[in-house]
């Protein structure tokens, strides 16, 4: 296994581009080109913009980025676009209706990514992250985030309260 140095110094030259296949490509200082790299956030919930890692196609870390803003504009754009395509954690903004207070229950919700239905299979698929934020895993493994309970409207809170 060859040793891949982590580039933690933000000034080290590297560039993120896209190849013909539409995959993200990393060109490091020593001239190596990695195809099909992908970014992951280290703290997607608690600190989304701190600590990003660029992983190779076979899931080894290539690059650690302390914060997104340290990068040049182009790389930032590509990273942001790739993240937008990979990350899927809709944030619930309001809950319109729940089919029942007993599980499994289907909720009609509005998220930051549009309206959706989610099936709550069991009450313990609602996970409390902090005092005010919740993570709800639906029957198909999608994680819905409630970033701040207090920010929800009264009706949603009331519905949600029945499950907490």
């Amino acid at each position: 296994m060859e040793q891949i140095p982590l580039i933690t110094d933000q000034k080290a030259p590297f560039a993120l581009t896209r190849n013909a296949g539409g995959q993200l490509q990393l060109n490091t200082a020593d001239g190596t080109i990695h195809d099909g790299v992908y970014p992951v956030r280290a703290f997607p919930i608690s600190a989304a913009d701190e600590g990003l890692s660029v992983m190779s196609a076979d899931s080894h870390e290539l690059l650690w980025i302390e914060r997104l803003s340290d990068l040049d504009k182009d790389s930032q754009k590509h990273l942001a676009a790739e993240l937008a395509q990979r990350e899927f954690m809709p944030e619930i903004q309001s809950i319109h209706q729940v089919s029942s207070f007993a599980t499994p229950s289907t909720w009609q919700v509005t998220t930051d990514r549009g309206d959706a239905d989610l099936v709550l299979k069991a009450e313990d698929h609602i996970r409390r992250l902090t005092q005010t934020s919740l993570l709800i895993t639906d029957g198909h493994g999608i994680n819905f985030l409630i970033r701040d309970l207090e920010q929800l409207d009264k009706q949603s809170r009331k519905l949600l309260d029945r499950f907490l």
């Binding site: 013909a20 296949g21 539409g22 995959q23 990979r86 899927f88 999608i142 994680n143």
Partner: peptide
């Protein structure tokens, strides 16, 4: 992570 993608390629080009 819960999202599936179906990709259409023409040779190497997506």
């Amino acid at each position: 992570a819960g999202v599936g993608s179906l990709e259409l390629f023409d040779g190497e080009i997506r």
